[in-house]
Design a protein around this nucleic acid. Structure first.
Lengths: 152, 152
DNA sequence: CAACCAATGTTGGTTGCACCAACGATACAC
DNA sequence: GTGTATCGTTGGTGCAACCAACATTGGTTG
């Protein structure tokens, strides 16, 4: 079995969109596996982190910050509410909304997930020394920010 | 409507795995849209490119080069065979296999797709000057290569 | 040569993510 | 007050990635 039998064509090997994709797949596999230990998914972490940094908010507002669709948010909030990591309460000022608030247990879980995430990033970027990692983050940030309007 | 209402939390904003993911989503949206003009998908391009660069091969071998699963390869080859962009013939030397060969029309289509892909990359990386693009490609290549064994 | 193991093409799934449409309820602007 | 917009919610869609199983064929080894 030729070891080079799996080499992709030149066209694909240096194609930025494909490289980004491959890297993302690897990253997701690593991060998902780390989170699986704690029985959570990526969006759980995103939601808890947003709640902790910005305080209580409506589901729609949380969706805007995390990039999670309103309709998907429902199930995620259900999920974390069942585990008592956050609380869902009707907003008395605006009865269309729910106010979502992180609990103490939620903060503890978040701290735990922070450690898992950090380890996962380290595994993901193991090939790069610190300076290159910062460089990569900078480049990706510029690319992402440039396409900031969600559906452009 | 606060313009900063969509700002993700700090934890997520610089998280390499998430940045990579966001960039990949953007790239995919742009590339998919470009390919849609030609009525093809990403894997069609991958397959045609592999065939052109490495010559005829079995479906399984093509799967190893492109990263496409054997089972998914079947439908893709069906698709491109119907459009006469490639030909599927039984391998007389090994009757388990099919030999897949790109046609002249396939090469023409590939050349067209090459142009679409190039334009899509340019749009994807519009925020970066050429030197930074090379830098990004280099960094991503190192990350991807480091995790080269598919399911590590 | 017989028995076993590996590879191939194929069918038929599953899962997760991103996304969209529609609806009733509520708030707001004119 | 009438229209417009937002919110939570339900119920979808499409796509990519992946897995299991099976019949056929090839290769290896006793």
């Amino acid at each position: 079995m030729d070891a080079a039998e799996g080499t992709p064509p030149q066209r694909l090997r240096t194609l930025p969109s494909r490289l980004t994709n491959q890297a993302a797949q690897t990253a997701n596999r690593i991060v998902d596996q780390a989170f699986a230990q704690a029985g959570v998914r990526r969006y759980h972490y995103s939601l808890l982190a947003t709640l902790e940094e910005y305080g209580p908010a409506s589901q729609a507002a949380l969706g805007r910050r995390t990039g999670i669709d309103r309709s998907d948010m429902v199930a995620i909030v259900n999920d974390l509410a069942e585990r008592r990591l956050l609380e869902r309460a009707p907003d008395l000022k605006d009865r269309r909304r729910n106010v979502i608030t992180i609990t103490a247990a939620g903060r503890e879980q978040l701290a735990h997930l922070d450690r898992l995430v950090a380890a996962a990033q380290d595994e993901f970027l193991a090939a790069l020394p610190a300076a290159d990692r910062r460089n990569l983050i900078d480049l990706l940030t510029r690319v992402v920010d440039h396409h900031a309007d969600r559906h452009g």
